[in-house]
Design a protein around this nucleic acid. Structure first.
Lengths: 333, 333
DNA sequence: CTGAAAGCGCTTACAG
DNA sequence: CTGAAAGCGCTTACAG
């Protein structure tokens, strides 16, 4: 559907009075070309407004110069600021390195959407934006020996290239912060229990609770989905059994928004409930300003996670040496 | 970098005892093939786990089966729920129609990022996610006669394929709603004044103000950027000159969040300011629950905008007939 | 209904 | 330093 009949390498070769081989060589900056030829060819390329066809190069080189970005099929994922920030950083990084970003998403089956790109040779490597236990997409990619980088980490395999935050440590530290602020009864609200993030953060929370000999029982723990409504319901359930709650760790910005809504709503009438005295620790929340609540946040640099994962997959594709796992800093405040 | 040496059309041809031409024909569901051959070929394809190379097809067909999604270079854009929802719908729709979504974004120059994809033949058509006045990307695409669909509308050209909401009408109606609720002095906070959305919504607001002979002066109007801080500062400035403000139209979810923060912050101490009595009309805000404020929202179905724009560009690419402009409904509530 | 051949626009060993 | 030729994996008129 490109209307201007495209100018091809043959045309510039003819016009420059050389062979396509030579033109090809100047395009790819091959060393042994005389300055004269090089100049001439560049000139003609400019005159003709020539731009090599990525498709034809792909076929000849057997590489697409595309990285696939795998978006999970579940709706909640997109609400998380992590999605928009890392997507942006990935697209930008890819572009800066001469690659493009192709989205793998069909709305219902993550693995199928990836398979399609992989089988059709549309991407050279893949970035997975989320880690869960026994991930079928990872199974597929590994079996096919197809290059990929995982944002997060795999609990199933030790040899998966990944970029992660130390979620265990961050969760432990944020819980400790609540303890220092005087909290005695700290609850935990996480997302899906298959999610590696939830698992890591829960373990960090747990370790701190144990270290400090704080109360720990099932009525303080909620793990559901990464949805606002789950935050709402979780805090409700926890408070029913624990009206004396004074601390809360919430692992996700969206869940947190549900928690906040509940507290704002219920705290309004029942001043006696003292809902606003609960100190809350949360992760990756955009906006932690709240006039009535005491909120501590772990800030993960999502852009950096994106950038690092994209650089990593491209490094792998280009045969450069990379670490198995890279850890991105977080900021607790 | 695909490790399994890929099975090609030649291999299945050999194994099936036919020519590649024939295999190619059964792949593309060409009518005049005997059932026997068809069956045989399908069988072999399955046995060999054959999947045609999209790259090779692209080269032969001169189409990539990719649509380019143009993301604006400014940071604020990504904060808007519009971005995530329409992106998702676009990727999903493309996938369902056998296309893939390629992102055009390099972090600083929108037009360049598009040019790159277009020149390299990496996409067959393009979706632009935002409309501004005198958009250089549109200039480029038009000049090149490259197929594209605009989400929003062009004020510069009448013949641009686009998918839009009736922003003028929606803004007028939401302002009317404030009037019905008794507002006498209604301010307007919009985004960038080059943005078509801001222009349309401002005009809708303005018409209602005039129709009702309400106060209209410069101190009531703020147009800055689509940022939270601009919302914060805008409402501040407006209130300085208009302490008796009782209505406010805010054209964007992010700006609105800044307005909200200001009101929450300032309203807390100064009960006399009566900040919480201001009725607010806004657009596309995720979460309009607020225990103290009276908020009216125009809900635009961003997924539908995405879906429609993607279907439209693909229809164009496939030579189907399409409307110049499609209008997506909004819901006022 | 099917095959041989040319072509899509590049790259790259090979030879000089 | 440069060119002729084969090849990447498909499609599609053309001929039968």
């Amino acid at each position: 559907m490109t209307n201007k009949k495209n100018v091809t390498i043959q045309m510039v070769a003819d016009r420059a009075g050389v062979s396509k081989s030579t033109v090809s060589r100047v395009i790819s900056d091959y060393p042994d070309i005389s300055d004269k030829t090089k100049k001439k060819v560049y000139q003609v390329m400019r005159d003709l407004n020539y731009y090599p066809s990525a498709i034809a190069r792909s076929l000849a080189n057997k590489k697409s110069k595309n990285v696939g970005l795998v978006l999970p099929a579940d709706d909640d994922f997109f609400e998380n600021p992590f999605f928009r920030d890392s997507l942006r950083a990935i697209a930008k990084t890819a572009s800066s390195r001469g690659y493009d970003t192709l989205i793998a998403y069909n709305g219902d089956n993550e693995t199928l959407s990836v398979e399609r790109l992989v089988k059709a040779n549309k991407v050279d490597g893949v970035i997975m934006m989320r880690s869960i236990i026994s991930d079928p997409t990872i199974e597929y990619l590994r079996e096919r020996k197809f290059p990929f980088v995982l944002i997060g980490k795999s609990l199933d395999y030790k040899d998966v290239y990944s970029v992660d935050t130390n979620n265990f440590e961050a969760a432990k530290k944020i819980t400790e912060k609540l303890v220092k602020k005087g909290c005695k009864k700290i609850a935990f609200i996480g997302g899906n229990k298959e999610s590696v993030v939830t698992i890591d953060r829960f373990n960090g929370y747990l370790e701190c609770i144990k270290d400090n000999n704080l109360i720990f029982d099932d009525t303080l723990i909620q793990k559901n989905e990464f949805r606002k409504c789950d935050g709402y319901l979780s805090i409700k359930r926890i408070l029913e059994k624990n009206p004396d709650l004074d601390g809360l760790v919430v692992t996700d910005a969206i869940i947190f928004s549900g928690v906040l809504e509940y507290i704002e709503k219920m705290g309004k009438g029942n001043k006696n409930l003292n809902l606003f005295n609960i100190v809350i620790g949360t992760f990756g929340t955009d906006n932690t300003y709240n006039s009535k609540l005491n909120i501590v946040n772990v800030d993960v640099d999502y852009m950096e996670l994106g950038r690092a994962s994209c650089d990593k997959i491209i490094n792998i594709l280009e045969g450069k040496e990379v670490n198995e796992i890279d850890i991105i800093d977080y900021i607790l405040k």
